[in-house]
Simulated scan of single mutants.
Amino acid sequence: MGLRRKLLVSIGLILAILLVLLYLATSVILMSSFSNLEEQLVLQDVNRALRVLETEVLELNRLLRDWAAWDETYAFIETGHPSYVAQNLDDAVFANLRLNLMIFVRYPDQILYSKAFDPQGNRPAEIPRGLYAYLTPESALFNLPHPDSSVAGILPLPEGPLLVAAQPVLTSRYQGPVHGALIFGRFLSAAELARLSQMIHLNIDVRAYDDPSLPSDFQEVRSSLTREKPLVVQTPGANSVAGYALIADLLGRPALITRVVATRDIYYAGQAAQNYIFLSLLAIGLVFGEATLILMDRLVISRLSNLSTSVTRIRTSGDLTERMAESGKDE
């Protein structure tokens, strides 16, 4: 193998090894950074979804305050007069407030009046049977003896997740004594989730924590979600990334898992950047290698070739007085 070829192979191997090492280093650093950025943005989206759910609960609680601290409601709890129902609890009220149920409680243990409504179907409905387990005198929804008592949160009913709020019934001046309580409920239905998703421009899905028919990706993350680690990010598919969050019920028990799905635009942007970097390194390596070969050829190989030619000529001629031609001022 000639000197030029040996030099070409050596430089090529060195450049190839350097390119591979640089590519691996940039791949680890770059893709790790893009993956971390993707995870952070997904977690931000999950927190946005949690905040909008919390806002819905707070809004329901504020709406309830207007009805619970009202002289007419206070009088209704005391007297049970049907005129209150006729004047204030028609279907249009439920539709306008997007409420699924109202329950009026008279202490110590009487459900004075209850009504359920389906705002999507615009028709009366039944009080969900799963709610009755929470309507006992000892329950948090029922037992509100003080004027400043209040509970609000989410209940994972068999009929679906229910946003619920309960407050003691007071006069319009927020005074007692407390003779009962008022409960509002709003199902977190598909229509409600679609409305919330549109509000924050995210794809929100909510499932019951103990649902035996959970989708496979929910089942995979369920064991990873705890009070200490309520947020998890997974990649259920090559083109999507999802964030999951654990939501507790009124009693602090695991109740729901919410999921936000996003496309992997950031990750694929990182892959594109990685490919651009590799092509740039390859181009730079080829230019550097070509320049190195040209310089080596002019500064070293060509002179060694001339030296070899001169030595051969002198040996062939046998004239030891002949001198080799010199070029340049270096060695």
Rank of each mutant, 00 (worst) to 15 (best):
Y209R: 06
R323A: 06
E220N: 08
F34K: 08
G160L: 09
A125S: 15
P124C: 10
R315V: 05
V221E: 02
R195I: 03
L202G: 08
S83E: 13
T171K: 08
A133R: 15
R65G: 04
S114C: 04
E192K: 06
E59I: 05
D265H: 08
I14R: 01
S317L: 13
A152F: 02
L97G: 03
A262Y: 00
L21K: 01
V42C: 07
L101M: 07
S327A: 11
G285I: 03
P212H: 01
L170P: 01
V42F: 05
N100Q: 10
S216M: 07
D330C: 05
S189N: 12
L196F: 10
D211F: 01
N239T: 14
G130F: 10
T136K: 15
N239R: 14
N203K: 08
L53R: 07
P215R: 00
I277H: 04
S172L: 09
S150G: 06
T316C: 00
R123V: 12
L196N: 09
P145M: 07
T292V: 02
L320I: 09
T73H: 01
V57L: 05
R5F: 04
F142S: 07
R173F: 09
A95W: 00
N143F: 11
L19R: 03
F288Q: 10
A16C: 13
E38P: 01
L202K: 04
V311E: 05
S27I: 00
D90M: 10
Y107W: 07
M1A: 14
A269R: 11
T258D: 11
T226K: 12
E38G: 03
S10D: 05
P82M: 07
F142P: 05
I154S: 05
A191L: 01
R315N: 11
